[in-house]
Structures are given as C-alpha cells and as structure tokens.
Design a protein around this nucleic acid. Sequence first.
DNA 1: TTGCTCCTCACGTCACGTGAGGTGGC
DNA 2: TTGCTCCTCACGTCACGTGAGGTGGC
Lengths: 286, 286
Amino acid sequence: VLKIGHFSRLAGVTIKTLRFYDDAGLFRPVYVDPVSGYRFYVTSQLPTLQRIRLLRDLGCTVAEVRELAPALDSPDCVRKLVALRKRLIVRVALDEQRLKEIDRLLQRYPEPASDYYKWPVVERRVAPVPVLSIRDRIRTFGIHVERMFEDAELQVARRGRRAPLSPFLLLHDMEYRDKHIDVEVCVPISPESLTACSGSVVDGVDRAACARFSGSYDQAPRLYEAIVDRMGSEGARIAGAVREVYIRFGANQCGYTLPRRMLANSVGEYQTELQIPVRPPGEQRL
Amino acid sequence: VLKIGHFSRLAGVTIKTLRFYDDAGLFRPVYVDPVSGYRFYVTSQLPTLQRIRLLRDLGCTVAEVRELAPALDSPDCVRKLVALRKRLIVRVALDEQRLKEIDRLLQRYPEPASDYYKWPVVERRVAPVPVLSIRDRIRTFGIHVERMFEDAELQVARRGRRAPLSPFLLLHDMEYRDKHIDVEVCVPISPESLTACSGSVVDGVDRAACARFSGSYDQAPRLYEAIVDRMGSEGARIAGAVREVYIRFGANQCGYTLPRRMLANSVGEYQTELQIPVRPPGEQRL
DNA sequence: TTGCTCCTCACGTCACGTGAGGTGGC
DNA sequence: TTGCTCCTCACGTCACGTGAGGTGGC
C-alpha cells in the first residue's frame, strides 16, 4: 500500500488531482486513515486510474467519466467509446491541418537553423527484448536513474540470467525532459528467466530513428530535439516511447558483473544511442 | 463592415469570445460606436483572428498570444512556433497512442455493428476545380444552404461562365453536424471566369473515400458516420474538408439555367455523393 | 530540531458561458 | 408591437492549482 505521493508519481498525476478525484467521488483510495486523514492506494488501482485519465484526455467531463468508468463493457459505454474514437480521429485530423498551417507560416519566415544535420541519424528496426524493468516518475535524471539500474541489475543477478545486451531506458512521456518524467529502466534477461524475474517483453519497433553520442548525458536532450526536428521536417511522427540505450557506461558492479565491452573508465568513454520510433509521413492532400 | 454576429459566424467563434478578446486587448473591432457600444469588424481581420485561434488551439495562453500575434516574423516568435510545432507533434503521437488504447478496449468488448458494410464505398482521386464560392456558418442545413446556392448560381450567371460540373458543399468543420457548421457552397466555373467571378480553385484530393445515396438529404449524416467508421477501422484518417456533391437535385432556375441531367423532379430522384479525403494508415508499431 | 510528507480549507485561475435587464432599428 | 440583434454587468463553471496553517514520523 502506497501513500499519495508515491502513488501519484507512479500514475503520472499530481497529488492535487488525486485529492480532487477523491472528493469528486471519481477515484477513491483503498483506505483512508480515520485519524490522520492519510489516503492509501495500491498498485492494482493503476489501470483504473489510467482509464480515467484516458477518458479525461479524450474530452469527457468528470461527470461523464464517473458514469462510464465503472462499467466499460456496458453497451452504452461501448457506444460512447466509439463516439469518442470518432472525435479523436477528428482531433488528429485537425492537428494535422494545424501542423500544415505552422509549416506554411515557418516557410514564410525562415526558421532559425536547427543543428540536426550535424548528427548522423539512421533508421532501422529494433527487435523485441525480454527485460526486468522498474518504472517510476522522476524529476531529474542522474543519480536516481543510476540507482534504479543498480537495483534492476541486482535483482536479475539474484533471480535469473542476464542477457548480454545493453541496458536501456524507456521514456514513456514524449516530452523527454518534463517536470516529472515517466521512465522505465530495462535490463535485458534471457527468455527463460522471464517468470523467475517476473520480467516482461518490450515490443520491437519496425522503424526507429537512431543516433549516437559519446560522453556526458547532457547531450541527450539536444540530440533528441535534433532528431525530432529532422523527423518533423520530413513529415514523420513519433510512434511510441523513446529509448536511451547505454552501450558503454559506468557501473559499480556490486553484486553483479557486466561484460567488459559495456564498461567505460571515464565519462569521455560513454556511448549512448537514442532510438525514436517513427511513423512515416502519410500521403498528403494536394 | 460587419456587426459582431455576422463576423462571429464567418470566423467560427462565438460572440462571447469576440467580446472577451476585445476586453482582453487581444483582438479589437475596427470601430466601436461610442453611443450604442456596437462593435464593428471587417473581413480583412479574419486572417488575424484565425492566427489567434491557431495559437490558442496549440495551447498558448491568451497572454502568450497577445505577445506573439502582432509580430509573427520576429526571431523570438519563430522560435516559439518551432517549439509549438514540436509540442503538436507530441500531441498527435499521444493521440495515436490513445486511439490504440481505445481500439484495444473495443476489441475486448465487441463493438455494436456499424452499418458501414451496407454502403458501397470507393476510393478515388478528385480533381481541383475552379469555383465561385460563398462561405458561412449555419445552424441547420436546408433552406439556408439552398439560398446560398441560388445566390452563387445567380452571381455566376451574371458575371462569368458556369462549368457543366455538379455544384458541391465543402464542410470545413469535421464534426459534420455541429451547432454551427462552417460550410462553403461551390459552383464550378470555367477557368477563364476566375477573375470575373472573383472565384477560387478548390484543391484536388489524392485519395477520397466516396459513397452515394439517393433521396432525402437526411441520410447524409448516417452515411458520413458509416464511411468514417470504416476508415477508422482500417486505421485511416480524415485528411481535409468533406465534400457533399449534388449530382441530381432540385433548383428553381430563376435567372440561370442548369444542364437537364443535374435536375430532379422529386426528392426521390435526388442523387448525392459524399467525398472524404483520406490519409492512409501509417506503419504501426509492432 | 530539521526536513519531508501528509492533511484541510478557502480562495484563485483560466477562458470563456450564462442570464438578467435593457437598447435600437425594421 | 414583435422579433432580432446588440449592449453591460455580475456571477457561474470546469478541473484543478495555490497557499496558509498545521500534523506526524525519522
């Protein structure tokens, strides 16, 4: 059972929102301490909250969500979902028109040069991979992600067999650097260890825009921007969670060991690859 | 010069919004009558308002818009636009994920059958066509649209040469039947009459989903839904303004004449085609 | 004791929307 | 006179966010 702060980070919503949903009778903690008033939640409530957020993001009001959320399988609700899907399709169509509008404006007033041409970007396919993963919301990169990786490596060492593949980070928010970023550290494991490690399989990607940098992780956001810039200028769109793959990196190896080729002696030797799933540009209106 | 009601219909915003923008110092009428307080606008203000709406729809606050809108060509503003474009790309990516979410949910709870299979839908290319057009916001179809067409035909007869093609309606809102619908009645003209009629050229469409019905126009919304349903189930998206083409229809022909093949003697003889521009499905993540 | 997390309660905010009560031209 | 459009002003609304003032465990 989790206190509100922890649960809110897992769910990617603010504490205020959770309290508001509680007052609104939309989403309740499993338990409220009668003396302190503390709200307590459990991880099994996450899917429900995600569905609520989905409906809200689709434009339902809180009152509508309150009616729909409990019984998503009622015929009424299915009808509603179908209607919402149509609205969403329309919204995407409108957004694509707005993108064209912006592009027209930017064509007239020439865009300050982006530095995307400096980085070699290749497009390729990324295979699915079984992993042990830990997911959390963090405010800053660095020490926190490091600890999550150390944790994951330790668990793999204790409970199953590691696969000799690079560990990587999944960025589930597409803002890359936001206030609170929803990240998932992934340590590849052998397929047979899936149950022992209670692991999962990360989906493969048909087409991913990939680019590498070496040295400090500070460069990641700029490289990310550069890739998205290039994709945008080609009419392509982001099609899923971004991956940050650690090819050579630092690790303290307490309680586990890694293949030597993954290890770097100094920050200068770090090697990292960004992978952004790409949806190619659809056909355009003449 | 237009009073607020007329201007609001042209622009597709409410009267309340225009008054609010005036008070907020965001968008001012060209003239305010000092005694009655009436606000007056001119059509040349429309592009400015459209830009303001674009920025608002992109997530700018009113305060941001107030700073940006006057000088879209300043380097600051171009930077901002580039940032907004990135945010929009992310929003589209998120919406596509949400669509997949909904599809997953609907797969589990089988969708009540749509009637799209009843209608033969073909996909084809639609050529660009020079027209004389009149655009307005309307609350209901019927008499109002009819009048707009009579108007347009009259103007063409007086000022230029009509092309022997079917007249059609462009639906600029993608909701199809909303409170106020932004429609443009189009009467095809010969290319040489473009200047005489102060006409314009309606863009062609590479791929349009087309289906016909005969008889009363009441069937249009259901057919439209059916086509969009089918598109949605195939992963395709709406790529622009929907067209309603009148193949056989009623007309009083006062002051103009139409080719006989376009005319219907009774509602039963009406023939109408819906054309929805299609963007084919992008590649999917595995 | 400090720092951190949690609480309630009242009020703020953003971009309008609603509605009362009234005017002015056809 | 009726119906339509326009006005102002005050208040409402939606989904939270802010901030004051306070608690409780390490």
